[in-house]
Computed example of a mutant assay.
Amino acid sequence: MWCMRFEAKNGHFKRLVKGNFKNIPFSLAHQNQLYICHRLLSSTSYLSNQTVVQNGKAVDFSYHPLTDRLLELLNQPQQLPVWVFSASSLSMCGVVYKIGSVIKIPAIDPDSDFSLACIDLIIVVNDQNFFVYRRLSICDFNDHFYSYEVQQSPAIGIIQCSGLVQQCALCLRKVAGRLLVTDKVSTVFHVPGLSN
């Protein structure tokens, strides 16, 4: 596992502990919580529900296989042509979604909490945002990279942005011929032998 990100985080704590030798764990935890709280509360994009759509163009969606599903989500009768605005990226609640980003969508399988999908198109219609996605099938969980091994599936779908399981964009990487999906924002490590 690559450790440079952990070393960078460690450097932050080394700066905090300089000259402070009383109750170091409490001091570090307290200072880190204050820092995170400051970042979250001072970030307008994290707290606001403002949506920012980046660069795009008007596209005729009339002959797309998901046109009927889009009209059903919009509660509109079938009328052609169906014009949509296709964006290159979309920012919601501080999370930037781009074409190729991975999202968590509601699961098909009742035993699973979520499914993974790769964004093919970001479309805006009547101030409503939608992701056209290609479903990813989860093969296995890779403990070494702490990521999901996935395979691309031919199944496509469309979901309104508010229908996501979790507001986060995951990262899709190809490592040694395998497609891996990792969390960009936070990673939780489970240490064997320690209980929660």
Score class of each variant (00 low, 15 high):
residue 7 E to P: 00
residue 142 N to G: 01
residue 62 S to P: 06
residue 2 W to Y: 09
residue 106 P to A: 01
residue 150 V to G: 09
residue 84 V to S: 01
residue 105 I to A: 02
residue 163 G to D: 11
residue 142 N to L: 03
residue 181 V to N: 04
residue 21 F to C: 13
residue 1 M to T: 06
residue 25 P to Y: 04
residue 141 F to Q: 03
residue 14 K to L: 12
residue 157 G to D: 01
residue 139 C to K: 12
residue 112 S to H: 09
residue 22 K to N: 11
residue 117 A to V: 00
residue 13 F to W: 11
residue 94 G to N: 02
residue 171 C to W: 02
residue 179 L to H: 15
residue 27 S to C: 12
residue 142 N to Q: 07
residue 75 N to E: 08
residue 182 T to G: 15
residue 11 G to C: 11
residue 95 V to A: 01
residue 61 F to R: 08
residue 1 M to L: 10
residue 182 T to P: 00
residue 124 V to I: 10
residue 112 S to K: 11
residue 122 I to W: 03
residue 59 V to I: 01
residue 186 S to V: 13
residue 164 L to A: 15
residue 48 S to A: 13
residue 97 Y to P: 02
residue 169 A to M: 14
residue 144 H to D: 10
residue 52 V to R: 06
residue 184 K to Y: 13
residue 81 P to L: 09
residue 22 K to R: 08
residue 115 S to I: 01
residue 89 S to I: 03
residue 86 S to R: 13
residue 124 V to G: 07
residue 48 S to D: 06
residue 3 C to A: 12
residue 105 I to E: 06
residue 82 V to S: 12
residue 76 Q to P: 00
residue 175 V to I: 09
residue 187 T to D: 06
residue 161 C to S: 14
residue 49 N to M: 05
residue 25 P to G: 06
residue 131 F to P: 03
residue 55 N to D: 14
residue 173 R to Q: 09
residue 18 K to C: 07
residue 180 L to F: 02
residue 106 P to H: 02
residue 129 N to A: 10
residue 76 Q to K: 15
residue 164 L to M: 01
residue 67 T to N: 08
residue 32 N to L: 09
residue 25 P to S: 13
residue 28 L to Y: 02
residue 51 T to V: 12
residue 3 C to K: 07
residue 89 S to H: 06
residue 121 L to I: 01
residue 5 R to E: 14
residue 48 S to Q: 09
residue 194 L to V: 07
residue 133 Y to P: 04
residue 44 T to G: 14
residue 190 H to S: 12
residue 147 S to H: 03
residue 128 Q to H: 08
residue 68 D to C: 04
residue 128 Q to E: 14
residue 60 D to A: 01
residue 167 Q to I: 05
residue 19 G to W: 05
residue 178 R to D: 06
residue 128 Q to T: 13
residue 135 R to D: 01
residue 134 R to V: 11
residue 34 L to G: 15
residue 22 K to P: 00
residue 107 A to N: 08
residue 57 K to W: 03
residue 61 F to C: 04
residue 106 P to K: 02
